[in-house]
Design a protein around this nucleic acid. Structure first.
Lengths: 329, 329
DNA sequence: CTGAAAGCGCTTACAG
DNA sequence: CTGAAAGCGCTTACAG
């Protein structure tokens, strides 16, 4: 590959001059023309490794998510990539897979590869690995330390779910969640739901099936639902789940139990996922503004890189979306 | 951040010695111990940009796919990341989004960032951008030039679909496809289907709705199906589509037309996608061995990087999977 | 086995 | 405005 030196020789100027035209600094029109001609002629491509070594800017950002097999994260990562591309950054994709060792590996790699910043969704206790010297924005996870965070309005999402369920005629509500209790921001979904139930003075129950191991503890949930049935009818007539994935599992269990949705019970999920990520909504749900979350995350990360001021916390609005599992309010 | 020089000073040895222990070369036990102690003490992390500049190895691979919003690609990318991680490589995620300019940008970036190799699924005519000096493996796309390719057995997939449809009792088959006609490997799905129909001596029809613009040309397909109905019954009683995404759209159209699946017509898709990428199959389908495709791709890429011999073409086997839209053969 | 030194391809003061 | 030179943090022959 041609180097800056080859270009300088070909154009008959000093390497410093070539560097200047490469970086848009002022050089005489005559030299600029010569250099540009040589660049084109030699097919010169800048070696970012050499530049990065000198300037300490790499124009790369590491994105750490649990797993893009999960459509929510795939969607988030997809939009982050587009945003990064617009801004001239490249993305290292890191899947932690809820594996502490792997997450630590990536957090370390990030130093070695001198990424300019990190955008991450992490549920592990990785704070010890976080040296504050690298710009970092977390999604949906509010660290105790002063790390930048962007999230959607999980609390209000829970409220919305309770409101729509009641508006659709449900009188005895149930909230089901699974997952790590470290997901501090997402925990607010249940809190908002509960607050709204109390405010509306409706009967409700909160149940937590703990960390899901790929199976969403389906057997446990099945037992739970079954034990709340009497003469073929479920005690609850409105269910809100912490994620769409969980809602899908619940929907299948209800089907097995012979319960009609939304006639007998309405179901609302959370995330707002669509068929193949582009068709209809999978079910009635509280939709997160994934695109905006991606945009804001990238924007914050780049501001941090440039040492510009940023808000420590940003909470984006959620909306209710109809997907056939509610009696459309 | 501490540099190799800091470590050398702290340990009282030369930088060359530190470099050797870093790279697992032989140094005296005494010095090795001293160096390791200093590394730990200073929290030293190697600067890969400096090393990369020297050695021209970056341990990074660019993965180029159209868009991970598509669950098939999300799945592929997810498994590629795991494989890469195992082998000590990092991944640049590049979404071309079927945008020629963006794809060209990434292909160029790849030179600037000196990635060791590329793994890609591209449908554009990007060959001119491909300088042969960088190891590259293509998935599902067979270039005329001698680029390494891995694919699943699309032809046999088509055959399997026809066989299962007939085995389930269908007598008049229909193949529907959408998408770029550049997808040379995936085009074989239709070819295999047709070959099997002829061999089995069954009535069939092939129809191509061209490039999908996010909407799968749904209106056109609806019209087509409707024009082949008579007295509420569809002329065809078995449908095979080029992808699961398309099959889902067809399923919805059939529902709108009041046609029962699988009673009136059986439907088989292609890809083998699952609910949330982990639950049940979306529908009866021809499943691609995505995990193996990822593994083989990474393996080939790394062999190419090491200048080891590799097979130019690898075709992995596909299987029929039952997902409720066939009369289970 | 170890140290001193050159060099990878850039950028950036510093003179002129 | 331009050139010559130092230096970013590594690795790798080359002497000793």
């Amino acid at each position: 590959m041609a180097t800056i030196k080859d270009v300088a020789n070909d154009a008959g100027v000093a390497v410093g001059t070539v560097s200047k035209v490469l970086n848009g600094q002022h050089v005489s029109a005559k030299n600029k023309k010569k250099v540009e001609a040589s660049i084109a002629k030699l097919g010169y491509q800048m070696n970012y490794y050499a530049r990065g070594l000198r300037t300490n800017d790499t124009y790369t950002i590491a994105v750490i998510v649990p797993d893009i097999l999960n459509p929510f994260f795939a969607c988030l990562v997809s939009y982050i990539e587009r945003e990064l591309y617009q801004r001239g950054y490249k993305m290292f994709l890191c899947q932690s897979q809820k594996d502490v060792a792997k997450e630590a590996y990536y957090l370390k790699l990030v130093h070695q590869n001198r990424v300019d910043g990190i955008i991450g969704v992490t549920y592990n206790e990785t704070e010890p690995y976080l040296s504050g010297d690298i710009p970092m924005v977390m999604i949906d996870r509010h660290f105790k330390t002063d790390i930048c965070c962007v999230s959607s309005d999980n609390f209000h999402g829970g409220e919305l779910a309770a409101e729509y369920l009641v508006a659709g005629g449900s009188k005895r509500l149930l909230f089901i969640r699974t997952g790590s209790t470290l997901e501090s921001e997402t925990l607010k979904r249940g809190q908002g739901f509960e607050a709204s139930c109390q405010k509306q003075g409706v009967v409700y129950k909160m149940v937590d099936f703990g960390d899901d191991t790929e199976s969403y503890s389906e057997a446990d949930i099945y037992q739970y639902l079954k034990s709340h049935m009497q003469g073929g009818v479920l005690f609850f007539d409105g269910i809100y789940t912490s994620t769409d994935g969980l809602a899908l599992a619940v929907l299948e269990l209800l089907r097995q139990l012979g319960i009609q949705v939304p006639q007998d019970v309405q179901v609302i999920g959370h995330d707002g996922l669509k068929h193949m990520n582009k068709g209809a909504y999978l079910l009635s749900s509280i939709a997160q503004p994934i695109k905006d979350m991606a945009k804001v995350s990238v924007d914050k990360a780049i501001r941090l890189i440039h040492k510009e001021p940023v808000d420590q916390m940003t909470i984006l609005p959620v909306t209710f979306v109809y997907g056939g599992t509610t009696r459309q309010a």
